[in-house]
């Protein structure tokens, strides 16, 4: 008995060591890229050309950031990006919660149709509908407006289903008292369900925030004027290169990396702030039997 226990602990120790080593290596591959981007963003122009993985700049310099802010007047695009991301995310949360709530209500005529309407779009390849979507946007007079960027993906199948699953986990008993009070569906939704769904909201909120903040193709397609540029177009315009005709444009790597750092910071902040809700939201939202 004693020896068996002993053996098990040694086995356990080895297992635990192997396990932690495995996880550490994995984690390293995930941290190194961030450190590398950060380090290169603080190098001098010439050092940033060196084609090696750096974890520290040899000579500390903020010239990359200076160039980034001087050469791309980044304040405008940053503001536009914030407007599009924040308002888009908020509206997205509201509309998807509403739709998700409707789907958990008991049967009503047309529910099947609603389910089809909501699930099928997820399977349509975006490359296929680029041209028709552009035509629709133009018909609405939304080409070259920030509204077009807010409108695109204002609801999504994923978010609606996630909210629906989340709402399903909320005990029905909670709403009964409200219904007895004579509250209608909207009130049940706004007063009972929504406040309880904070984790679910945080989850779709984070996903939306990340994808809206990083959106690129819609902005390329719908935006024409410089004063409506969003962050990713502005950053991409820094690095102009064409292989077939001669090009003289170049920007040092430190400025490009500085661009990546600037664009990642808000994402990290939002992730850290909402992390607590996010994880429990994912859990209840996604897991469903």
């Amino acid at each position: 008995m004693y020896s068996r226990l002993y053996r098990r602990t040694t086995g356990k120790r080895i297992f635990s060591a192997v396990n932690i080593t495995f996880l550490m290596i994995l984690a390293m591959t995930m941290i190194i890229p961030f450190l590398n981007v950060l380090a290169v963003s603080f190098t001098t122009n010439l050092e940033s050309y060196e084609n090696t993985i750096k974890l520290f700049p040899r000579e500390f310099s903020i010239i990359g950031y200076i160039n980034l802010f001087r050469r791309v007047a980044i304040a405008g695009p940053l503001l536009n990006n914030t407007i599009v991301t924040v308002s888009g995310t908020l509206i997205h949360i509201l509309l998807c919660s509403m739709a998700g709530f409707v789907l958990v209500r008991s049967r009503f005529p047309g529910k099947t149709l609603a389910v089809v309407l909501i699930t099928v779009p997820m399977m349509i390849p975006f490359q296929m509908i680029i041209i028709p979507v552009f035509v629709t946007m133009r018909r609405f007079g939304l080409i070259d407006t920030l509204s077009s960027l807010i409108l695109i993906d204002i609801v999504s199948t994923f978010s609606i289903l996630l909210m629906k699953n989340y709402f399903e986990s909320i005990p029905r008993s909670l709403e009964e008292s409200a219904v007895i009070d004579g509250a209608n569906e909207w009130i049940v939704f706004a007063k009972v369900y929504l406040p309880l769904a904070k984790p679910g909201i945080a989850t779709i909120g984070i996903f939306q925030f990340v994808s809206r903040w990083n959106h690129f193709l819609p902005a390329v397609l719908f935006i024409n004027s410089t004063d409506k540029y969003t962050l990713q177009i502005a950053l991409k315009s820094l690095v102009v290169s064409s292989e077939l005709t001669s090009t003289t444009q170049s920007v040092a790597n430190n400025a490009r990396m500085a661009g990546i750092v600037v664009s990642i910071i808000p994402l990290l902040l939002v992730y850290i702030l909402a992390q607590k809700y996010f994880i429990s939201g994912i859990m209840v939202g996604a897991v469903k039997e």
């Binding site: 680029i130 041209i131 552009f134 035509v135 193709l217 397609l221 410089t226 315009s237 102009v240 290169s241």
Partner: peptide, 20 residues
């Protein structure tokens, strides 16, 4: 009125504008 998309996506933007 100057429309100047990033060159990496230039053909996509140009095609879309011409096609529509």
């Amino acid at each position: 009125e100057l429309i100047k998309p990033p060159s990496s996506e230039y053909d996509t933007k140009l095609t879309t504008m011409l096609a529509t």
